[in-house]
């Protein structure tokens, strides 16, 4: 192999080569940045739609506050998304003539099947979140964590991290992790941040873990 030849050949074109090198370097950087910041997040999350659409506005007008459907049980635990048992009170028969209503009544109510709602704010199994501590004791509003879902007319697309299975709402919509509202992200650091502010202490591990 004639290594020396090669070296001298590149020596001849050194100025040009230097420029090309830098150019290619920058192209490389650009490709990676585009890949990492734009394409990767698109690939990472799968989009799922809810089994049927749902309007929080319509319902809150009809039944009142959030806690008419998302209520506390007697033992202090939070019921979360309503089950069929709660819906059935009004939806035994179809209310209105939308397609979603028809599907709901025919496929779920009539067959006594729970709607497999996708929960945007679902924390993993290792997390214990006490709604009672936040809503009852600290008198926090639903919006501080759940945002404006209560005034939405349709359900947003549910995005699921393909690797972890988390809802995107946990990590935050912004891939850089930048948040503008308290409800933009629901990671441990966000819990800690608020606790630090309100209580002066991030809390012990077992406070929120099980």
């Amino acid at each position: 192999m004639s290594e020396t030849q090669k070296v001298s050949a590149s020596d001849n074109k050194k100025k040009d080569a230097g420029g090309t090198t830098i150019l290619f370097f920058l192209i490389g950087v650009a490709i990676s940045l585009a890949l990492g910041w734009i394409i990767f997040p698109k690939l990472l999350y799968s989009k799922k739609s809810q089994p049927i659409d749902f309007s929080h506005v319509v319902h809150s007008e009809a039944v009142g506050d959030c806690d008419s459907c998302h209520f506390f049980r007697e033992d202090g635990t939070f019921s979360g998304a309503p089950t069929l048992a709660e819906c059935i009170d009004c939806h035994e028969e179809a209310q209105g003539d939308t397609e979603d209503e028809r599907i709901f009544v025919e496929e779920y109510v009539a067959q006594n099947k729970e709607v497999p709602w996708l929960i945007y704010s679902e924390q993993p199994d290792s997390v214990f979140f006490s709604h009672a501590a936040h809503v009852k004791k600290a008198k926090m509003s639903c919006e501080s964590c759940h945002g404006e879902i209560g005034t939405s007319d349709a359900l947003p697309i549910y995005e699921e991290n393909r690797i972890t299975g988390y809802s995107r709402n946990i990590w935050g919509k912004n891939i850089a992790g930048i948040k503008k509202h308290t409800w933009d992200r629901m990671k441990m650091n966000d819990c800690g941040e608020c606790h630090e502010e309100e209580i002066g202490d991030k809390g012990s591990c077992f406070q929120c873990h099980k």
Binding site: F25, G28, V29, A30, I31, S32, L35, W37
Partner: peptide
């Protein structure tokens, strides 16, 4: 060079 740039760029992207 492209490879080096790509590596450097990746480190500054959220991907890794």
């Amino acid at each position: 060079s492209l490879g080096a740039g790509a590596t450097a760029g990746l480190a500054f992207s959220p991907l890794p």
